[in-house]
């Protein structure tokens, strides 16, 4: 896990992302000047900032998750590891944790920058920081697990397409469920229902509207999200380990 994290941290792409996020946050801070009231400005910066962090978190998970195992296989360095007396699931889990750690560290840095910007501009300490961090970690964990699983396909394009497709569908899970209810054709209704249950529901981790409206997040809601994420992750890790075990290198 630690080696994967260090390897990922060395990745130039992360630095580029971080710089870009800093610039983007600075720009949106500037846009805040166009708002009419300080309260609206505060909400705008929070809203845009969280959206950017979410987007870049996914991109980091996508780019790193899709290449970490693939690169090892192409460079043949994985042979040296797989000939050690260890199970493939151990390596897979280590890769997952390392990639997740990199994504989380980046997310925390970005959140830290956003919080600092808000404090500098408004003199307010963001009270919902810990909740945002928790829910984003859960969201990124599932995204990373998904990308890592899809990275075991033979093509990078397939991995990218499947990952983006699943994240988009997962972000619209409520609509998919609605479609399943509304569909007149039984087969379509059945299929959309299957998609709804198979695709991760990222709606459980979207607390942006609660943060923006200063709504409290109940412990039961958080517990449900953590439980859902753990179960889904377990499924993803088992599926990924099995796929890696069956993969001919």
């Amino acid at each position: 896990m630690w080696d994967t994290f260090l390897d990922v941290a060395r990745h130039k792409m992360l630095t580029v992302h971080l710089v870009f996020v800093c610039i983007a946050l600075g720009l949106f801070n500037l846009f805040g000047h166009f708002s009419t009231t300080p309260s609206l400005e505060y909400r705008m910066i929070q809203d845009v900032g969280l959206s950017i962090i979410s987007l870049f978190g996914f991109l980091i998970a996508l780019f790193i998750g899709s290449t970490t195992l693939r690169d090892e296989i192409q460079r043949k360095t994985i042979y040296a590891i797989f000939t050690l007396p260890m199970g493939r699931w151990e390596l897979y889990t280590g890769k997952f944790l390392g990639t997740l750690l990199a994504a989380v560290v980046n997310m925390l840095i970005m959140l830290g920058i956003l919080t600092l910007l808000l404090y500098i501009k408004f003199g307010l300490i963001w009270s919902g920081f810990q909740w945002v961090a928790l829910f984003m970690i859960l969201e990124f964990a599932i995204m990373t697990g998904m990308v890592l699983l899809f990275s075991l396909t033979d093509s990078l394009i397939v991995c990218f397409s499947l990952s983006i497709f699943c994240v988009l569908l997962g972000s619209m899970a409520e609509h998919v469920q609605h479609l399943a209810f509304e569909a007149d054709i039984p087969l379509l209704s059945y299929l959309t229902d299957v998609v709804y249950w198979v695709i991760p529901n990222f709606g459980y981790f979207n607390i942006k509207y609660k943060i923006l409206k200063d709504l409290t997040i109940s412990p039961s809601f958080a517990m449900w999200a953590v439980g859902y994420a753990c179960c889904y992750l377990f499924f993803l890790l088992v599926a990924g380990s099995w796929a890696l075990k069956k993969k001919d290198l």
């Binding site: 192409q74 460079r75 043949k76 360095t77 042979y79 040296a80 000939t83």
Partner: peptide, 11 residues
């Protein structure tokens, strides 16, 4: 057991 693959790309 040890294995030295062909054309391994070292770090």
């Amino acid at each position: 057991v040890g294995f030295l693959p062909e054309a391994i790309q070292h770090p």
